[in-house]
């Protein structure tokens, strides 16, 4: 397949994947599978009147949605979908994932502060509390995958899983990264920044129209991006028999995305202070153990 055609197919599959994630999200909340639901919500937000709150912070109000979607697009651009199908193959790819995703929190913080409302602001600070909880385990889990590949190129990390996928090689790291990915995308059970039932939408409670649309679209793309990251780092990326590489990547990605929503559907919300406590008291020591275990296995 020519690079142009595979690039086109990947873009198409990604857009389709975002729509599929939107259907999954609805299904996890309402229990019904509605194929036209996301399209209707899209049109609703697209045509909705833009309401600006009184004394809002103009700069943050305009910057936050663009920053949110911008960092997600940056993350997508460094992820390899198949051998050779990566927009920018960064020499520090594994670190860059984490660097870009930190700015999800910054965007939420800015959006929370900008609208000059209590619910949004509380949501924004909760996003920060969650980041302090998951940032150490996620970066340590990434370190262990880099140790095995002896390279920060994401393509090298996939190649290093030729004999055994990282999910089996370092299961502790996988669990930590998986849980952290849920928290990064503020999906249930870690959806406190936008808690619907309690903060009436939190960070995006006061956003309407195009700004909310950017946030909603960004979150769906974020879920898919994190699923691709899980696949690349732990599930052997594009590896698989018979089918082309990018088809395997997308099959695994959709499976991971579906599992994200399934987990969120059955587990009760975890409060941000509990998340801080669990992650620092158990998550960080486990992440250190994971690095130690991978180091020992590598030296044997």
């Amino acid at each position: 397949m020519t690079p142009f055609l595979s690039g086109f197919m990947i873009t198409l599959l990604f857009v389709g994947g975002v729509y599929f994630v939107a259907v999954l999200e609805r299904c996890s909340m309402t229990g019904n599978v509605s194929w036209s639901g996301p399209a209707r919500s899209f049109l609703l937000l697209f045509a909705q009147e833009e309401i600006k709150t009184r004394k809002h912070d103009k700069v943050f109000f305009e910057t936050a949605p663009i920053l949110f979607i911008g960092v997600i697009l940056l993350t997508i651009s460094i992820l390899p979908f198949s051998r050779g199908s990566v927009v920018i193959d960064l020499g520090t790819g594994a670190l860059f994932i984490n660097a870009a995703l930190v700015y999800i929190m910054v965007a939420l913080l800015m959006a929370g502060w900008a609208v000059n409302g209590v619910y949004a602001m509380v949501g924004g600070w909760r996003a920060l509390a969650q980041l302090i909880a998951y940032s150490m385990p996620v970066v340590m889990a990434l370190t262990a995958t880099v140790m095995r590949a002896e390279s920060m190129f994401l393509t090298d990390i996939v190649e290093s899983q030729q004999s055994l996928w990282n999910i089996l090689y370092q299961p502790v790291g996988f669990i930590l990264f998986y849980i952290s990915a849920l928290a990064i995308a503020f999906l249930p059970p870690f959806d406190l920044p936008v808690a619907e039932g309690e903060l009436a939408g939190g960070v995006w409670a006061d956003l309407t129209g195009a700004r909310k649309l950017l946030f909603r679209l960004g979150r769906l793309a974020l879920v898919l991006t994190l699923s691709v990251a899980v696949v690349v780092l732990y599930l052997g990326g594009w590896m698989g028999p018979w089918l082309p590489g990018f088809v395997w990547t997308f099959l695994k990605t959709l499976l991971v995305a579906a599992s994200f929503f399934a987990v969120g559907h059955f587990i009760p919300r975890i409060r941000h202070d509990h998340l801080l406590e669990y992650n620092w008291k158990y998550g960080v020591p486990l992440a250190l153990y994971n690095i130690f275990q991978v180091g020992v296995v590598l030296l044997l």
């Binding site: 860059f96 984490n98 660097a99």
Partner: peptide
């Protein structure tokens, strides 16, 4: 200096937000 750049951008995102709170 790719590593230093990415590291700087990553660390400062967290640090400055914590400073804000």
């Amino acid at each position: 200096a790719e590593f230093l750049g990415v590291l700087q951008i990553m660390m400062m995102g967290t640090e400055m937000s914590i400073m804000a709170i």
